[in-house]
C-alpha cells in the first residue's frame, strides 16, 4: 500500500465538498476516480498534493503522515500531479519545461555554483538527455524548442505528463489526462500508463471517459456526495 486516505473531509466556508473520504492505493496499480462535475475530485487532488489543507482526516504516503506537509515537500517524497487545466511554463520551451520539472538539480542551489560548478554542468547534460528521451514518450520530440504556451491544449497535457515522468514521481495523480486528446493520443497515453505501471509506478486518475479509463484500471473509485465508493477488479 502506497497511499492511505483516512476520513478526509473538506468544506469551503460552510459548503461541504468532501464528507468522509477513505481509500487505499496499492503500489503498482492504476485506479480511476469517477464522479460528477463539482463532486470534489480535483479538490481531493489538491489535498493529497498539499495545495489545500483538509478540514479533517489523515493521509499517509508510504506510511508517513503527509496531510500537513507543504506541496514542495510532498513532491519531494514522490507524489506528482497534473492539473485539470494544464499548468506549463508558458514562455519557456518544452525542453526547459521538462528540465524545470526534474528533481534535485544541483544547479538550482546558488551555493553549488561556488562549491561544485562542474557537477552542475554534468547533471544538466544528463538531464537534457533524459528530457529528450521523455519527449519521445509523450510525442513532443519535434517541439522541444517550441514555447509551451504555443502548444495546443492536448499537447500541453502531454507535456505535463512528461514533466511528471522526469520528476520521477512514484505516485502520479492525473487530473483528466484524456480530456481534449484525440483517440490516437488517448491510446498512446493509455499504453504509456500501463508501461509506467509495469515499472512499478502507482497511478490515480480522474476521468470522465469511463470506458477508456476502466480499460486500464485495476480499481475504480466513485465519489458521490462527498463519499467514496469502491469497485474492485473491473479490468
Amino acid at each position: 500500500m502506497i497511499l492511505k486516505v483516512l476520513n478526509v473531509g473538506k468544506s469551503f466556508n460552510g459548503l461541504i465538498v468532501l464528507e468522509d473520504v477513505s481509500f487505499e492505493l496499492e503500489t503498482g496499480t492504476i485506479t480511476s476516480l469517477f464522479g460528477e462535475n463539482g463532486s470534489g475530485k480535483t479538490t481531493l487532488f489538491h489535498i493529497i498534493s498539499g495545495f489545500l489543507p483538509p478540514s479533517r482526516g489523515k493521509i499517509y504516503f508510504k506510511g508517513e503522515s503527509i496531510y500537513d506537509k507543504p506541496a514542495t515537500e510532498i513532491d519531494k517524497l514522490g507524489i506528482g500531479r497534473t492539473w485539470q487545466f494544464p499548468r506549463v511554463f508558458k514562455n519557456l520551451s518544452v525542453l526547459d519545461n521538462l528540465l524545470l520539472a526534474s528533481k534535485k538539480h544541483p544547479g538550482e542551489h546558488v551555493l553549488n555554483y561556488l562549491v561544485n560548478p562542474f557537477k552542475i554542468w554534468q547533471e544538466e547534460k544528463k538531464r537534457k538527455e533524459k528530457a529528450v528521451r521523455i519527449s519521445y514518450d509523450v510525442g513532443l520530440s519535434d517541439k522541444l524548442e517550441e514555447a509551451a504556451g504555443r502548444l495546443s491544449f492536448g499537447q500541453q497535457k502531454l507535456l505535463s505528463i512528461g514533466m511528471l515522468l522526469i520528476n520521477e514521481a512514484e505516485l502520479l495523480l492525473l487530473d483528466e489526462p484524456f480530456a481534449g486528446l484525440n483517440v490516437i493520443m488517448v491510446d498512446a497515453i493509455s499504453k504509456l500508463l500501463l508501461q509506467l505501471k509495469e515499472e512499478g509506478k502507482t497511478i490515480l486518475m480522474i476521468e470522465h471517459d469511463r470506458k477508456k479509463a476502466k480499460a486500464i484500471s485495476d480499481k475504480v473509485l466513485y465519489l458521490t456526495k462527498g463519499i467514496i465508493r469502491e469497485d474492485v477488479g473491473v479490468a
Binding site: 495545495f51 514542495t72 513532491d75 492539473w83 499548468r87 524545470l100 520539472a101 534535485k104 520528476n167
Partner: peptide, 8 residues
C-alpha cells in the same frame, strides 16, 4: 504553483 508542484 507549478514550481511548487515540482518541489521548488
Amino acid at each position: 504553483l507549478a514550481m511548487m508542484s515540482f518541489g521548488k
